[in-house]
Design a protein around this nucleic acid. Structure first.
Lengths: 326, 326
DNA sequence: TTGTAGGCGTTATCAA
DNA sequence: TTGATAACGCCTACAA
C-alpha cells in the first residue's frame, strides 16, 4: 500500500504537498498538482483511513444497535440510519444486541470505544445509567424505547394512543371482552400499550379484567396456550389486541382458529396477504431511524445546541379484515 | 479521556508498562500490575481503539455488504456474520448496497478503505474485476451470488437443483404447463434457476415454452400483469415456479386469485401461515453467512493456505399447500 | 507556493 | 522486569 511519502518521493515533492493535493487545498500550483496526481495514479494511492481517523480523533461512523436486524421493524430502522449517514459519507456500524439484556453493556461498550460520531440505540436492557459518561463524548439517540435513568434523546411511537385506537376500534365492533396479548420484551412500551388499552375500555365504561391479559404470547406454543386459557374462561373474549408484531405473528394461527377478531400493534410483511388480512397500528420505523440519525449528526456538529429530548411519533390504524371489518 | 501516559504518570511507571498490563503481558511484577490497574480504575482508562487500530494497521472489523438489510434473507446473512465475528471480538460494518449496481463500487470502496479484516459480499453489480487489487489485502467472500470476472471464494445455494426439485414436484402433480416467474435481479442465479426448471421439464419429456417465462414479476403490479398475460395464453399454465422469495411475495395474491399451484424458491416469514401456505425451496441464509464469515477470518489468519473456492450449499423442498399437496 | 517539525496514542525493539 | 525511543500515516502550525 502506497503512502503519501511514496507518492511524494515519486513526484519529487514533500508529503505535505501530496496531502494538499489530496484535500483539494488551493495553494498548490496546477503543474505541481498534476505531477502529484500522476504519481498518485501510477502508485494507485489510497489514503489510509485508519491514520486519518486516528489523527482526527474521531471515526467517521455512526453506530446502530438493535435487538435483532432480522426483525423487519429494526431492519427498517437500520436502513434509515444507513441512508441518512451514507448521504454524508458516514459509515454505519450495525450490531444486533440479541434478547439477553446482559449482553447489552459489553456490546455497546465495544461500539462506543471506537469513537463513534453517534449511536442510535434500541435497547433491550432496563437500565442505562452506566451510559452517562459516554454521552459526554458521543450523542446517544434512543429509538423505539426510551432511556431509563439516563438523560438522552428518544424517538418513540405513540404507544398509548395506538393501543387506544386499536382497542376502541374493536369495541366499536361491539366486542365487550377484548383480550390483551403481550410477551415479556421491553416492559416500558408494554406498559404504555396496556395503559392505552385500559383507557379505551374505561372510556367505553368497561372494567379491566386481569384474566384477559396474556403475557406469554411471544411464541407459537405460548400463544396457543394463552388462547386456549382465554377460550375456557366463563366469559371468553371475542376479540384481542396484540401488543406487538412479534406476538401478532406468533398468535395469528391460534387467533384465526378461534375466530377471534383482532388488531395488532405494528405492521409486518405479508400482513395484508394473510387470511384474514391483519388490521394493524401502523408504525413508521424508517421515520424513527431517520430522525434519530439526523439528530445524532446534528448533535455531533453542534454539541451545545439545545434539542427536544423526547419525540413521540404518531401512529395510525390500518384497517384490514382481522378486526371484523367487511 | 485518559491516555496511557496519564495512567503511567499516576502509577509512576512508563507508558509501555501500562500497555503491558493492559495486554496481559506476563512480564510485569504483580505489585506493579496492581498499581497500574489501580490507576486505570481511578482514571477510568479506556484504550483508544483508533490508535490501536492505526498502530496495528488493520481494523478489527469485518464488512458485510448486501443489497438490502430489510430483506429477511440478507438480514439472516448479516446476523450470522455478526454472530461469528462477535464471538472473536470483531465488529461488523454493515452496508446496504441498494438496487442500483452503479452504487456498488463506491460503497464497497468506502468500506474497503477502512482496512477491513474481511468482506462478506452479496453483490448487485455484474462485474467484479475492479476488486482484484483489493483481494490482495482483504479476503472477499461472495455469498448468494458468485463473483464475475474475479477470483474469489463464493458460497451459494444450489440454484439449479432447487429449481429442478420445485419444478419436478409440480410436474409430479400432473401439471404440464408450468410458468417460470422471475424479476430482473441478479441474472446469474436467475439463469441457473431457469436451467434447473428447463432440465426438469426435459426430464419429463416436456418442451420449454418461452411464453411461460415471466421476467417482470418483481412487483405487485408486474406480477399481476404477467399472470394476466399467462392466463390469456391459449394453453395457459396451471402451475408456476417462482424463482425467488421477493417474486413469490409479490405474486402471491395474483397466484391465489388465479388458482395456480405454485412453489417458490426461498422461504419467507409467514409463508407457512398464508392461505394457501406456500411450498418453498428452503435456503439457509444463516449458513451461508456463517460459512463466509468463518472463511474470511480463516483467510485473514492464514492468507497463504489453500481453500475450496466455490461452496455450493444444498437446498431442500419444504412441502406446504400451495403446490396442491393436501 | 512549498516544506519542516511535531504530535495524535499505542506498541515493537532493544537496551538497561 | 522495566523503560527510552522510534514508528505507524496523516495533518496542523509555522517557517521559508
Amino acid at each position: 500500500m502506497a503512502t503519501m511519502q511514496d507518492v511524494a518521493d515519486r513526484a519529487g515533492v514533500s508529503a505535505k504537498t501530496v496531502s494538499r493535493v489530496f484535500n483539494d487545498d488551493p495553494h498548490v500550483l496546477p503543474e505541481t498538482r498534476e505531477r502529484v496526481s500522476e504519481a498518485m495514479r501510477t502508485l494507485n494511492y489510497v489514503p489510509n483511513v485508519l491514520a486519518r481517523t486516528f489523527r482526527a480523533g474521531r471515526s467517521s461512523s455512526v453506530g446502530v444497535a438493535v435487538p435483532d436486524v432480522v426483525d423487519p421493524f429494526f431492519a427498517a430502522v437500520v436502513r434509515a440510519v444507513e441512508r441518512v449517514c451514507s448521504a454524508s459519507g458516514i459509515t454505519t456500524l450495525v450490531t444486533s444486541i440479541g434478547d439477553d439484556p446482559a449482553r447489552e453493556k459489553p456490546v455497546l461498550e465495544a461500539l462506543l470505544r471506537t469513537q463513534l460520531m453517534g449511536l442510535v440505540l434500541a435497547p433491550v436492557a432496563a437500565d442505562h445509567a452506566w451510559l452517562a459518561p459516554w454521552t459526554e463524548h458521543t450523542p446517544i439517540e434512543f429509538v423505539d424505547r426510551a432511556p431509563i435513568d439516563l438523560d438522552a434523546d428518544s424517538f418513540v411511537e405513540d404507544d398509548r394512543h395506538g393501543s387506544y385506537l386499536a382497542t376502541r376500534h374493536l369495541l366499536e365492533h361491539g366486542h365487550t371482552r377484548v383480550a390483551f396479548l403481550a410477551d415479556q420484551t421491553h416492559p416500558p412500551s408494554s406498559r404504555r400499550r396496556l395503559a392505552g388499552y385500559t383507557e379505551a375500555l374505561a372510556d367505553a365504561g368497561l372494567p379491566l379484567d386481569e384474566r384477559l391479559i396474556a403475557f406469554d404470547a411471544g411464541s407459537d406454543d405460548g400463544a396457543a396456550r394463552e388462547l386456549e386459557r382465554l377460550r375456557r374462561l366463563t366469559d371468553a373474549p371475542t376479540a384481542a389486541f396484540s401488543s406487538n408484531a412479534r406476538v401478532t405473528m406468533h398468535a395469528f394461527s391460534a387467533l384465526k382458529r378461534a375466530g377471534t377478531a383482532f388488531v395488532g400493534f405494528g405492521d409486518f410483511p405479508m400482513a395484508d396477504r394473510l387470511t384474514p388480512s391483519v388490521s394493524v397500528i401502523d408504525q413508521d420505523p424508517a421515520r424513527l431511524g431517520r430522525l434519530a440519525a439526523t439528530r445524532a449528526l446534528e448533535r455531533f456538529n453542534a454539541p451545545k445546541a439545545r434539542y427536544e429530548a423526547s419525540t413521540v411519533v404518531p401512529v395510525g390504524l390500518t384497517v384490514r379484515r382481522s378486526c371484523g371489518c367487511p
